[in-house]
Computed example of a mutant assay.
Amino acid sequence: MKYLLIICLIVIIILIMKIIAMKLSIKELREGYEERAGIHTNTVLTVSSRDKEILELAKTLNKTIVKLRDSYNRYEHGDQEIKSAITNISHDLRTPLTAISGYLELAQRQDCSPEMDKYLTIIKGRTEHMKKLTEELFEYSIVTGGEITEEKQDVNIGKMLEDCIMNYYPALKARGIDPVIDITEEKIVRNLYPTYVERIINNLFSNALKYSSGDLEISLSDDGRLRFANSAPNLSSVDVSKLFDRFFTVENARSSSTGLGLSIVKIFAERMNCGVKADYIEGKIVIVVDF
């Protein structure tokens, strides 16, 4: 009986040791899998255990890791190809469109019948629209490529906003929009990318021209909060929640927009660690950027 107890005790100890070893091996596999799933690496899982089932588990997990890696590589390669194609196509379109615009301008200076002048005006409008879409697609392909081509500088937000207001004022007046402007007298200076800040403000103006039903409020507070607000009865809270989505457009804007303007605003703001949000308040679309 004594020997039987000793044998049972030895077996129990062996089983306990085996269970502990298996738990350690499983923990080792789990940690290794989490590490390789979270980073781009060519290494596979290794395990110290010689247990057949544990080794089979490691083999199965490694097959999954290899498949995931291959899928990721195909996705990354395809994504880069798409961006490259957009960049090349939009770049190739810019030259002939510029030439067409030039010849149209020359044609409009010639003596022509009222009917022909009407046709030329229509063609010029469509050409300008194509140029705008091409520029947006080219810009989008660049900004999503992760490249920053300038150094951060001290940017006077108020001054840049005033310059943009002056540039857009004729377009606003042409739309019958008389903006209500409230810019702090405080000098708001931030260390940011000047091109990004300018593009953010320009795209906010373009968005206001696109959606406004006749009013526009622009304000810059002492703490650097830039706010654009305008009535937009054709929008809804659901539409506004999607305004920063890539390629999203609403019905009344599909004919004149790629849906990239506010997506680019979000990309640039996030790259500079600036907050950006859009709300729909009492029939108004309100977009805020915190510089």
Rank of each mutant, 00 (worst) to 15 (best):
I122T: 13
L29E: 04
M160E: 15
F228N: 00
L5P: 04
K187V: 10
S263W: 11
L4S: 09
N230I: 07
D215K: 05
D239T: 01
M166T: 13
I82G: 02
K242S: 05
G283A: 08
I7L: 15
R126L: 15
K2C: 10
S101G: 01
I7F: 11
F138R: 13
N62T: 03
G214H: 07
L161Y: 07
S219D: 04
I82K: 09
L260W: 02
R199A: 12
Y211A: 12
G78Q: 05
G261R: 04
G145S: 15
L209Y: 01
S241A: 15
N252A: 14
V143M: 00
D239P: 00
I122K: 13
I123W: 13
L57F: 03
N42R: 03
F291T: 03
R74F: 11
Y193M: 06
K59A: 07
N191C: 09
V238N: 08
F248G: 01
I157Q: 08
T95D: 12
G283Q: 06
K23Y: 11
I201T: 06
E128M: 06
T98K: 12
R30P: 00
Y140V: 08
G32R: 06
G125V: 02
K152E: 04
S90P: 00
S113Q: 10
L55F: 02
H129S: 13
N156P: 01
T121W: 03
I13D: 00
I26A: 09
H91R: 14
M130N: 08
S101M: 13
I287N: 00
I148F: 00
S263H: 15
D178P: 03
S113A: 11
Y169G: 01
S141I: 07
T195M: 13
H129R: 04
I82T: 08
T121R: 10
L172Q: 07
I200P: 02
S84C: 02
D117N: 08
L133I: 12
V276S: 14
R225I: 12
I218T: 00
I123V: 15
E31P: 04
G283D: 09
A85N: 05
I89L: 15
I285N: 12
Y119T: 01
L24T: 09
G146L: 01
A208N: 10
S90K: 06
S263N: 15
S71C: 03
T121K: 13
D70S: 11
M22P: 00
E128N: 13
C112P: 07
E150Q: 14
C274S: 14
E128L: 10
N234E: 07
I218H: 04
R109G: 12
Y33H: 02
I65E: 09
Q108C: 03
D245L: 03
L262D: 08
Y72L: 14
K59H: 07
Y33W: 14
K67F: 09
Y33K: 11
R50W: 01
I20E: 13
I14G: 00
L226W: 05
E56Q: 08
